Computed example of a mutant assay.
Amino acid sequence: MWTIRDVAQRAGVSYTTVSHVLNNTRPVSEDKRARVLAAIAEMNYVPSAPARSLKAKTTATIGLIVPNNTNPYFAEFARGIEGSLKRRGYCVILCNSDNDILTQRECLRVLHQNRIDGLIVASVGEDASVADDLKAVRVPVVIVDRPIAGLDADLVQIDHEAGAMMATRHLLDLGHTRIGCIAGASDTAVSATRVAGFRRAMAERGVEVLPGAVAEGSFTCPGGYAAACELLDAVSPTAIFASNDMMAIGALRAAAERGLRVPADCSIVGFDDVEMSRYVYPALSTVGQAILRLGDAAANALLARINGTVTGPAQTHMIEPRLLVRESSSRVVERAGHEANQIAR
């Protein structure tokens, strides 16, 4: 690998002259500059990023940790962050914690060694050890979706409860009262808040949540499938609110296996509006949260802290949800002798 001294020897100048040309730190004659640039091109020389960062005390690098990079939600979220930061001259190191606190801790160690300028985290877990791990990195931190107790950091999230209420009210407005809910992982605040929104919407309309009508689905397609099987076999709901789109897609499969038509026999509504939700059949009604905009908001909040344009106590940036009605939800019609859902024409 070529060094700055090799370039200087090829160009016939001092290595400090090469440094000044690379960093624009001091005027260099046109002749010397041309020779240096020619040598760099001939040798295909790439400056050492660690060496330059030690001098500049910045790396223009941001760390991003997500709990599951195979989940389309986090893939789209990461794309939003990368696009926003790239336009501002930053690159992103993406780490997958695989929903494991120890793996997340190792990700933090590696990112810290790479001297990142800031960190965006969709964290696994919410206990005190996670807060301590993040404090130890000693760079500005922005938390996404899942608040962490004991950590004074900006939070960017959608209004989870309002979104769940929006989805549930949509089903209630269509005449459904026998509604099941698929929750996410029981140990996350996101899941608890979305289920709370479901229950609140039912209560405000005076509709009882049937015993066994809430089943856990772990925020994955297989989890949603298993939870939907449980609900369809035990509760026979006319509609299901799933706490994310991946679980709702799993519910579509469970309904199809039972010969149930969606939405004619069972309406299904998700949460997130991942791109995939528009292309499954039937296209999924969902509560959207503009995932790319969420990533952009997280990037903006972090850069404001890094650049010092925002100081003081941590702030919460709340993204308002919106309902996107597609093909998987329709009005319920009561029939003599049994309940059936039919598409309102």
Rank of each mutant, 00 (worst) to 15 (best):
residue 214 V to F: 00
residue 248 A to L: 11
residue 261 R to D: 14
residue 217 G to W: 05
residue 180 G to R: 07
residue 214 V to A: 06
residue 187 D to T: 13
residue 179 I to T: 10
residue 219 F to Q: 01
residue 221 C to W: 00
residue 193 T to S: 15
residue 260 L to A: 04
residue 190 V to E: 13
residue 218 S to M: 13
residue 224 G to R: 07
residue 268 I to S: 02
residue 220 T to E: 04
residue 178 R to P: 00
residue 213 A to H: 06
residue 203 A to V: 03
residue 242 A to E: 01
residue 238 T to Y: 02
residue 219 F to S: 01
residue 229 C to W: 01
residue 175 G to P: 02
residue 229 C to P: 00
residue 206 G to F: 13
residue 196 A to N: 12
residue 177 T to D: 12
residue 211 P to N: 09
residue 252 L to H: 12
residue 247 M to G: 06
residue 212 G to S: 11
residue 194 R to W: 04
residue 213 A to Q: 07
residue 180 G to C: 09
residue 209 V to C: 14
residue 173 D to F: 00
residue 266 C to W: 03
residue 190 V to S: 15
residue 235 V to E: 03
residue 183 A to D: 12
residue 254 A to Q: 10
residue 191 S to N: 07
residue 213 A to S: 15
residue 262 V to W: 03
residue 250 G to N: 08
residue 197 G to K: 04
residue 228 A to L: 09
residue 205 R to D: 07
residue 223 G to T: 07
residue 211 P to A: 14
residue 212 G to Y: 07
residue 213 A to T: 06
residue 183 A to F: 02
residue 191 S to M: 08
residue 256 A to E: 11
residue 266 C to I: 14
residue 187 D to S: 13
residue 231 L to Y: 01
residue 186 S to T: 13
residue 184 G to H: 08
residue 203 A to Y: 00
residue 173 D to I: 03
residue 176 H to F: 12
residue 184 G to P: 01
residue 231 L to H: 03
residue 264 A to C: 05
residue 256 A to D: 07
residue 257 E to T: 04
residue 240 I to R: 08
residue 172 L to A: 13
residue 235 V to C: 09
residue 177 T to I: 04
residue 262 V to K: 06
residue 252 L to M: 09
residue 203 A to R: 14
residue 176 H to R: 09
residue 249 I to F: 01
residue 266 C to Y: 02
residue 203 A to L: 10
residue 188 T to A: 04
residue 196 A to C: 07
residue 192 A to I: 10
residue 256 A to W: 11
residue 254 A to D: 07
residue 182 I to Y: 03
residue 218 S to R: 14
residue 250 G to T: 07
residue 194 R to N: 05
residue 221 C to V: 15
residue 206 G to N: 11
residue 235 V to I: 15
residue 238 T to W: 01
residue 177 T to C: 07
residue 207 V to I: 15
residue 181 C to H: 08
residue 222 P to D: 14
residue 200 R to C: 05
residue 256 A to C: 00
residue 196 A to H: 12
residue 242 A to S: 13
residue 206 G to V: 12
residue 269 V to P: 09
residue 174 L to W: 02
residue 256 A to F: 11
residue 201 A to Q: 05
residue 222 P to K: 02
residue 195 V to R: 05
residue 172 L to H: 00
residue 237 P to H: 08
residue 265 D to Y: 09
residue 231 L to S: 09
residue 250 G to W: 06
residue 183 A to S: 15
residue 197 G to V: 08
residue 213 A to R: 04
residue 186 S to L: 14
residue 251 A to S: 13
residue 227 A to T: 11
residue 188 T to L: 14
residue 175 G to E: 02
residue 201 A to S: 13
residue 227 A to M: 12
residue 251 A to G: 06
residue 224 G to W: 07
